[in-house]
């Protein structure tokens, strides 16, 4: 499927001008209202993350904070252990992305370019993996990890996250490799370059956009994953953000400000990535859905 994300479809309707104006005002009004509905809860969260309960309970639940209490943030980062959760999420997600990128690019290259009999069968095997929901593997993985003594370790999350990132990643990457012309590799080969050298310095740079697409997808799914994280890790010092902020709201009970601060901290990295790679990210979501 070809996607003209920014294709300029200029379709000026040819009916009377006045009528157009009214209808487009209504259209923008509705689009605007819906934008507010999608965004305002997050702004509200940002605002109450600076308040304390006195302020919220004495009638200022909605407006700007009277005092911007940055202490809510320093509080949850240190006392609330959120700095540790944040670090854990960065470690788990970071290693998952590196590991899955290596496995995805090498396997996809072997499937798309290299000559071996079972390459088609292997791709089908991987496609089957795409159909399996996490739920079906939860209990068996829990039991295996428990018996291996791997519960409460980074590895207990990194391995499943990497495995579940592979099928779609490989599928997207194989499609990408097939669209890349072989000339560069052939000329490198004539120059007497070995295969590993060629893969690293010629092939990988060529598919950089695809790597970004897949990595963003992997980032989102590992950063936000809850079910495995909640089951395999119970040690507070190893919890990732998703599970950590759930226990935070347990500890903080009804203290809205610190809970809000924790939620904001968990969200900011995602938003930064979103605004930096907005188009790339949207394309990766589309690619994931259409290929998947």
């Amino acid at each position: 499927m070809v996607i003209h994300m920014e294709a300029d479809l200029k379709r000026e309707p040819s009916v009377g001008k006045k009528k157009i104006k009214v209808s487009s005002v209504v259209m923008y009004l509705l689009l605007g209202i819906f934008a507010v509905i999608q965004i305002y809860p997050l702004i509200w969260l940002f605002l109450f993350s600076f308040k304390d309960n006195n302020e919220i309970f004495s009638g200022n639940a909605m407006g700007l904070p009277l005092v911007w209490r940055a202490s809510n943030y320093s509080d949850v980062l240190t006392n609330g252990n959120v700095a540790v959760y944040l670090l854990n999420s960065v470690i788990v997600t970071g290693i998952t992305i590196v590991l899955s990128t290596i496995l995805i690019t090498t396997s996809a290259y072997a499937i798309a370019r290299m000559h071996w009999k079972l390459s088609h069968a292997f791709l089908n095997f991987i496609l089957l993996g795409m159909m399996v929901p996490l739920h079906a593997t939860l209990l068996p993985l829990f039991i295996v990890l428990k018996n291996l003594g791997l519960l409460n370790s980074y590895l207990s999350l990194i391995l499943p996250y990497t495995a579940f990132a592979l099928p779609m990643g490989i599928f997207i990457m194989v499609g990408f490799f097939r669209d890349v012309p072989k000339e560069m590799e052939e000329s490198a080969c004539l120059d007497g370059c070995g295969i590993y050298r060629m893969f690293y310095s010629i092939v990988l740079p060529l598919v950089r956009p695809a790597i970004a697409t897949v990595a963003i997808f992997t980032f989102l799914s590992s950063w936000n994953e809850l079910m495995f994280a909640n089951t395999f890790v119970s040690n507070d010092n190893l919890k990732t953000l998703t599970v950590g902020i759930m226990s935070l709201s347990g500890q903080q009970g009804t203290h809205w400000g610190p809970i809000g601060a924790g939620l904001v901290i968990a969200t900011v990295p995602t938003l930064i990535i979103y605004f930096l790679f907005s188009d790339q990210l949207q394309k990766s979501v589309i690619a994931g859905a259409i290929k998947g």
Partner: peptide
């Protein structure tokens, strides 16, 4: 935006 934010 809401799609990319953690469900928690």
């Amino acid at each position: 935006i809401p799609v990319i934010i953690s469900t928690v």
